[in-house]
């Protein structure tokens, strides 16, 4: 095979900051986030779009950054777990709820879980328990047994509703 590597300049927004970074076309978003931007909160586990550990939001929708090309993030808004808390360090209601409900043990799935849940609550703030379970079924947790995760999402849902009422 011929040498086809060719650098491209990726201009994107990560956690609200404009970023310009040289990438190769075949680099995944997870590789660029973790290795070039040092945002290691994004975890890679299965590497085949099944487990959801690598979930980040692009224009508000969840993607598997393990297989999604960084190239696709051009001119888009990327949100990783590092960008979720407010600038003053106040945690997002989902983060607080995950802590309060003990919704993680090893924590490897947690960044992806929280970002997937954020996408759901942003799209459909009044999701039923069934909708939460259905939406989250592509995010796998090997530790908690899921009950506490669903409880945390419901708690965050209630606190977001309180804040906006």
């Amino acid at each position: 095979m011929s040498d086809t590597s060719a650098q491209i300049l990726l201009r994107t927004t990560v956690n609200g900051l404009d970023v310009a970074v040289a990438i190769e076309p075949q680099e995944t978003l997870a590789e660029v986030l973790r290795e070039k931007l040092q945002l290691i909160g994004t975890k890679v586990s299965c590497n085949v779009q099944v487990c959801g550990a690598c979930t980040v939001l692009v224009d508000g929708l969840p993607v598997s950054s393990c297989t999604y090309l960084a190239y696709e993030a051009r001119d888009r808004q990327v949100l990783t777990i590092e960008g979720l808390a407010s600038k003053d360090g106040t945690l997002h209601p989902l983060q607080t709820a995950f802590i309060e409900e003990n919704a993680f043990q090893c924590g490897f799935c947690t960044p992806g879980m929280i970002l997937a849940a954020k996408s759901l609550l942003d799209q459909r703030p009044d999701s039923s328990e069934h909708e939460i379970v259905e939406y989250m079924e592509g995010n796998i947790c090997r530790c908690t047994g899921y009950r506490s995760i669903v409880a945390a999402i419901q708690k965050a849902q209630a606190s977001v509703a309180d804040r906006s009422s």
Binding site: Q49, L61, S119, L120, Y135, E137
Partner: peptide, 9 residues
């Protein structure tokens, strides 16, 4: 189809 991430992409 699949999961939310595959559906989004």
């Amino acid at each position: 189809v699949a999961n939310t991430r595959v559906r989004a992409t």
